[in-house]
């Protein structure tokens, strides 16, 4: 057998193994979507029917046109996630640049504080935040959700790592040209950091979209509900309607899957450049 042939067989075997592993990874998702098109008795039929015999939209109709207003939850979640992400990327990339490429007094101390705060469990902060928000009059408004999202610590951390990896010569050449830091940041570093920034935009968006705890504590009016909150209420109300539950869950992940599909080519590049030189 030729060397090439051997290689091809090896490649096939490896591919098969990897496909099997990948299937295990997506089974919970496939199960969720497939169940959402089933009727209740079909849910636990064995052997598993991955494709329902008579697929029905009933469950999805209940989610989108039923008592719950998923369209409204979507609008609220989008607003919060987009505003939060834009802020997180803007303030985060600026801070990351400052920490990575500018010399100023107290820099390491401040960054050390960030590292320390990375370890803070978010549950500690609920009660004090609640009191502050109430005092500031933003409790039970979307501000209480997207304002904190705008200040990401982990994002600053990763983006700083990325800025550190860029060659020193970039700064030196620009200084000789007489460019200030703001020009350098805008004209040189931001464009170079595009993959990292897109990656964090995707991750921030995902985190904001999936944020259940803050919405739970800081929102009261049903008009303000976000998707995870609506989803959880749905799950509690219809706790034995499996297709309905799965249809609601499916509805809640659609934007994440879309964002991921469009942005995935950046994710690898972005995470790599921000963590390799740890």
């Amino acid at each position: 057998m030729t060397r090439n042939g051997k290689q091809n067989i090896g490649q096939m075997v490896l591919t098969l193994i990897m496909i099997a592993a990948a299937l295990i990874m997506i089974i919970p998702l496939v199960w969720m979507i497939s169940t959402s098109f089933k009727t209740q008795p079909e849910v636990f039929a064995y052997p598993v029917k991955w494709l329902p015999e008579r697929p029905t939209w009933e469950a999805h109709r209940k989610v989108w046109l039923g008592a719950l207003n998923f369209v409204k939850y979507y609008r609220n979640s989008l607003k919060i996630a987009v505003l939060g992400t834009v802020g997180a990327i803007t303030f985060g990339s600026m801070a990351a640049y400052g920490f990575a490429r500018v010399q100023f007094r107290g820099r390491n101390l401040l960054f050390g504080l960030y590292l320390l705060l990375m370890m803070v469990p978010p549950q500690i902060l609920f009660v004090p935040k609640f009191i502050m928000f109430d005092w500031a009059g933003i409790y039970n408004t979307h501000w209480a959700l997207f304002l904190p999202t705008m200040f990401t610590i982990i994002g600053v951390f990763y983006m700083r790592q990325h800025f550190l990896t860029l060659p020193k010569e970039l700064t030196e050449a620009a200084i000789i040209d007489g460019a200030g830091h703001f020009t350098m940041f805008r004209k040189i570093f931001l464009p170079l950091a595009k993959p990292t920034i897109v990656t964090f935009a995707i991750l921030d968006f995902t985190w904001a979209w999936n944020n259940y705890e803050d919405a739970l504590v800081f929102l009261i009016d049903e008009d303000l509900y976000t998707v995870p909150l609506g989803l959880n209420n749905f799950l509690l109300e219809y706790s034995i309607d499996y297709p309905g539950m799965m249809a609601a869950a499916t509805a809640s992940i659609i934007p994440i899957v879309l964002v991921f599909l469009f942005g995935q080519r950046y994710i690898i590049e972005g995470l790599v450049s921000s963590s390799v030189k740890g």
Binding site: F130, D134, Y139, N140, V217, L219, I220, N232, N233
Partner: peptide, 23 residues
């Protein structure tokens, strides 16, 4: 009439609402 879900999360939300008072 404003309906809240009578479970742990729902009651938490009620208590938070009364804390702010005006609703």
């Amino acid at each position: 009439y404003v309906r809240y879900v009578n479970n742990e999360d729902g009651n938490l939300r009620v208590n938070m609402a009364m804390q702010t008072g005006d609703d």
